[in-house]
C-alpha cells in the first residue's frame, strides 16, 4: 500500500540523483577522452587515439616545468604545513593562555576570508619582499592556506586522546617531549596524516594565488593551464587536466585507505 505512492517518488529521487551526479562528474571526466584525441584541436568526441599530448606535456618546458613546480610546491607545503599545523593544534588544544580564542580564529581565518582578498594581499606584500615567482613565495603562501586544514584535523584527533595516557607516560619517566613523540603523536597520527593530504591537495589545485604569485620563470600547473586555455585551445590542456585529476584522485584514495586501515585496527 505504502509502496504505491512511494514508488513514483523513488523513481523521481533516483532520476534527480543520477542527473546531479552527471552534472557534477561529467565536466570533470570529459577531459579524459579529450586528452587522447588524435586531432590538434580540443574536440568532443575525440577523433582517433594518440598519446602525443601527454608527450608534449612532458617535453614542452612550459608544461613540464609547471608540473615539476607544482609537485615541489605541494610536497613542501604539505611538509611545512603539517609540522606547523600540528604544533599549532597542540598549543590550541592542550595549552592554556590568554587570547587563545583569538589565536584560534586567526589561524583558521584563511578558511573564511575570500581567497582573492588573500591573493591580492600576498601579491602586494611579496612583490615588496621580492619573492613572487619563486618556490619560497608560493610555498609560504600555500602553507598559510593549508595550515588550517592540518589544525582542524589534528585538533580533532588530539581531542579524542585520553589525557590519562599522557599522564601515565609522565609517571613512567617520559618528559614532555618524549611523551609527545611516543604517545601523543602516534595517537594523533590519523588527524596529522589527513591534514597532510589535505595540505597537499590545497596547494596542488590552488589557482588564484598561483596566478597572482606566478611568473613565467616559476609557475605551478594550474596557473599554466589558466594561461594556456586563454591563449590557445591545445589538447595538451586536457592531458594536463587529466594528470592533475589523477594525482588528486590518487591522494584521496590514499586518504581513504589510511582511514580504513585505522578503523580496522
Amino acid at each position: 500500500m505504502t509502496d504505491s505512492w512511494r514508488q513514483p517518488r523513488r523513481i523521481l529521487m533516483l532520476g534527480l540523483g543520477i542527473l546531479t551526479a552527471i552534472f557534477l562528474v561529467v565536466p570533470t571526466l570529459v577531459v579524459i577522452p579529450m586528452s587522447v584525441t588524435a586531432s590538434t584541436t580540443l574536440t568532443f568526441p575525440p577523433e582517433g587515439f594518440s598519446t602525443q599530448w601527454y608527450q608534449k606535456m612532458l617535453t614542452d618546458p612550459s608544461w613540464s616545468n609547471g608540473l615539476a613546480h607544482s609537485f615541489q610546491v605541494a610536497i613542501l607545503t604539505a611538509l611545512i604545513a603539517t609540522v606547523l599545523g600540528t604544533l599549532a593544534a597542540l598549543g590550541l588544544v592542550r595549552g592554556r593562555f590568554p587570547g587563545k580564542g583569538i589565536v584560534n580564529a586567526i589561524m583558521l581565518s584563511p578558511l573564511i576570508v575570500p581567497l582573492i582578498v588573500v591573493a591580492v594581499g600576498m601579491f602586494l606584500l611579496y612583490v615588496r619582499w621580492k619573492i613572487t615567482g619563486s618556490l619560497v613565495g608560493l610555498v609560504a603562501a600555500h602553507v598559510g592556506l593549508a595550515m588550517p586544514f592540518v589544525i582542524v584535523t589534528t585538533s580533532a584527533s588530539l581531542r579524542t586522546i585520553d589525557r590519562n595516557l599522557e599522564m601515565a607516560a609522565q609517571t613512567l619517566g617520559a618528559g614532555p617531549f618524549r611523551t609527545f613523540l611516543r604517545v601523543t603523536l602516534p595517537l594523533a597520527s590519523p588527524g596529522v596524516l589527513a591534514g597532510a593530504l589535505f595540505a597537499f591537495m590545497t596547494s596542488w589545485d590552488e589557482v588564484i594565488v598561483a596566478i597572482f604569485l606566478g611568473t613565467v620563470r616559476f609557475r605551478t600547473l594550474p596557473a599554466v593551464i589558466w594561461e594556456q586555455v586563454n591563449e590557445s585551445i591545445d589538447p595538451t590542456v586536457a592531458a594536463v587536466s587529466t594528470t592533475v585529476l589523477a594525482v588528486t584522485t590518487g591522494v584521496l584514495l590514499l586518504a581513504l585507505l589510511v582511514r580504513r586501515r585505522q578503523s580496522a585496527q
Binding site: N164, M167, A168, Q170, T171, L172, G173, A174, G175
Partner: peptide
C-alpha cells in the same frame, strides 16, 4: 615533575 619522581601509578 612526575617523570623525575620515580613513582609507579595505576589508573
Amino acid at each position: 615533575p612526575p617523570y623525575r619522581r620515580n613513582v609507579g601509578m595505576i589508573f
